[in-house]
Design a protein around this nucleic acid. Structure first.
Length: 306
DNA sequence: GGCATTTGACCCTA
DNA sequence: TAGGGTCAAATGCC
């Protein structure tokens, strides 16, 4: 089969799967607040579609005799201990070792993880502070450096660097270095809010689509959840309990987003008084959401890197 | 005023 | 020595 055809089929199938997954997620949240569970049957159908997409994609891959033309990433995570790193950008005159981001040539020795996404990573739920930006040799866009905001008060050594590696559709590569050793107050706060929502179901999770053309590859980017009045007070109390104004727990990574100016459509939600990070505002289905996001989201994100 | 971001300079390593 | 990573003063925003 011709490589371009295979590629197109793969993208089509994966796109379908991704759209279905997003729809499923919306349904699950809807079901969460809908005691009648009307959408359960449709959810089952969606799951079948997703599985079908996966099966077809795998079938296409398996039926191809060589993998040299597809450039499908085989490794999702790369480490600095000698395991393979993916070519990070369109460098042409550099050696392979120089293409290994954060490795070999530089001082980094901490464990490194690389993720490529169509957005600048908005759901890791850690507060990051930008401490540098630099144009990298042969890179089209500057690389931004972030450290955990708890670096000094808790000694957290986690850092990440974000680089835009493609314009259309926007593609970012985020390299996480080191583990968070800080106490993640997001997790604590989520428990408080979970209890609240479990009792009164006053939450609205809005996943309305924006303009389709605003999103790369027709991705459905959910709008941020809005907390209604009943939870407002508890969130305010939560915010007041934070000891320092330097702890910007509300949508920390949107700052990252905005630093790239690519997702200004989120600004309205970002400015909303009661908007918090989706991972923070964890309703009863939040664990499932995280799993979906981590498992399916990362899979599809990686698959789109042809 | 306090905080985050920007940016030039410096540090460190291959 | 080149170049990526980090620091810290300057600047801007709220």
């Amino acid at each position: 089969m011709e490589s371009s055809t295979v590629r197109k089929r793969l993208i089509d199938e994966l796109t379908r799967g991704r759209e279905s997954t997003n729809m499923l997620r919306v349904m699950l949240y809807k079901t969460q607040n809908d005691r009648e569970c009307k959408s359960l049957l449709s959810s089952k159908n969606l799951i079948e579609k997703i599985l079908d997409s996966f099966d077809k994609s795998l079938s296409i891959l398996n039926s191809s005799k060589s993998n040299e033309v597809y450039d499908v990433p085989e490794v999702k995570l790369w480490h600095c201990d000698g395991r393979k790193l993916k070519d990070f950008s369109k460098r042409t005159n550099t050696s392979e070792s120089e293409n290994q981001i954060g490795c070999n040539k530089r001082r980094k020795s901490l464990e490194t993880q690389i993720r490529e996404t169509h957005f600048a990573s908005i759901q890791d739920c850690h507060a990051w502070r930008k401490y540098g930006q630099k144009f990298i040799l042969n890179a089209q866009h500057p690389r931004s450096y972030f450290r955990c905001t708890n670096k000094y008060d808790q000694g957290c050594q986690a850092t990440k660097l974000v680089q835009k590696i493609q314009d259309d559709p926007p593609l970012f590569s985020t390299t996480y270095q080191g583990q968070h050793t800080c106490k993640n107050l997001f997790e604590e706060s989520s428990h408080i809010i979970m209890d609240t929502t479990a009792n009164n179901s006053s939450t609205i999770w809005s996943f309305d689509s924006h303009e389709p053309n605003d999103k790369p590859n027709g991705m459905v980017i959910p709008t941020l959840p809005i907390i209604q009045q009943e939870t407002k007070e508890k969130v305010q109390n939560l915010q007041e309990s934070f000891s320092s104004p330097s702890n910007y727990f509300l949508l920390p990574d949107l700052m990252t987003l905005e630093s790239f100016g690519e997702f200004s459509f989120l600004s309205s939600a970002y400015d909303h008084e009661h908007v918090i990070c989706p991972d923070v505002y964890s309703g009863p289905g939040s664990a499932l959401d995280m799993e979906i996001e981590m498992m399916l989201g990362s899979v599809f994100n990686d698959c789109f890197q042809f």
